[in-house]
């Protein structure tokens, strides 16, 4: 299988704090990777660099053949639009847009909107009857499912999920995890930051970070 992500000696410093310190690993297409570690270990920094939200101080972060470190502001924007699907812990939906419009917003920034496709994406995450609801009218689990639909709508090469179940109750967590299992089964490549070992066990590989360094890599038995 081809590597979708190749990270080589990745470093990131904020002022004098070293958030990532020579991280190297690769992710094959269709893999589900769980990135774990204590707070401040560099998990979110890693995700942000891979998603083009931040740039490394040195090293390489190649996603689907594109070295993120070499992109300018406009290139990063295009990269995020075309190759990445984000799912955040805080959902991050636009509060005055309906579920459907939140999904279509990602289409609009990518190229052109297709309402039918956006409806199908929401149907797929089980929200066919909630498309005209505003985020404030949806439960946390429903909002996260809208975020998943939005992440999928442009057919990204890589899904980056930062604690996607961190704000959900047990029932909603299960619904969202089931979605991720389905996405994985369909061949999507997923990098998921999580604190929960039970979620980490669902992944193909678990990468532990500590103080910005790769502590250990565990492959699911």
């Amino acid at each position: 299988m081809a590597a979708v992500v190749q990270i080589e000696n990745l470093r990131k410093e904020f002022d004098n704090v070293r958030a990532l310190d020579g991280v190297t690993f690769s992710v094959e297409s269709g893999e589900w990777i769980a990135i774990m570690g204590p707070s401040g270990s560099g998990k979110t920094t890693l995700i942000n660099i891979l998603g083009g939200l931040d740039t490394p101080t040195s090293g390489q972060a190649v996603v689907d053949g594109t070295d993120v470190a070499r992109l300018d502001e406009a290139g990063l924007t295009r990269f995020r639009s075309e190759k990445i699907g984000f799912v955040f812990q805080q959902f991050h939906l636009v509060p005055y847009l309906t579920a459907l419009e939140n999904v279509m917003l990602a289409q609009y920034f990518h190229s052109t909107t297709d309402e039918g496709e956006a409806r199908a994406a929401l149907d797929r995450v089980g929200l066919a009857d909630r498309i005209d609801h505003l985020p404030g009218q949806l439960s946390g689990g429903e909002q996260q499912r809208v975020a998943v639909a939005r992440a999928l709508i442009n057919h990204p090469k890589l899904i980056l999920a930062d604690e996607p179940t961190g704000n959900l109750d047990e029932a909603n967590e299960e619904i969202v995890l089931r979605l991720f299992r389905e996405l994985h089964a369909e061949g999507h490549t997923i990098l998921m930051v999580t604190h929960a070992p039970s979620i980490g066990q669902l992944a193909d590989r678990r990468i532990d970070l500590a103080h910005g360094r790769l502590a250990q890599v565990k492959v699911r038995a």
Partner: peptide, 15 residues
């Protein structure tokens, strides 16, 4: 916050 989110999901600043 909205603009940050829009940028994160690939929204060009011009748009």
């Amino acid at each position: 916050k909205d603009v940050g989110l829009m940028k994160a999901i690939g929204g060009p600043i011009s748009r």
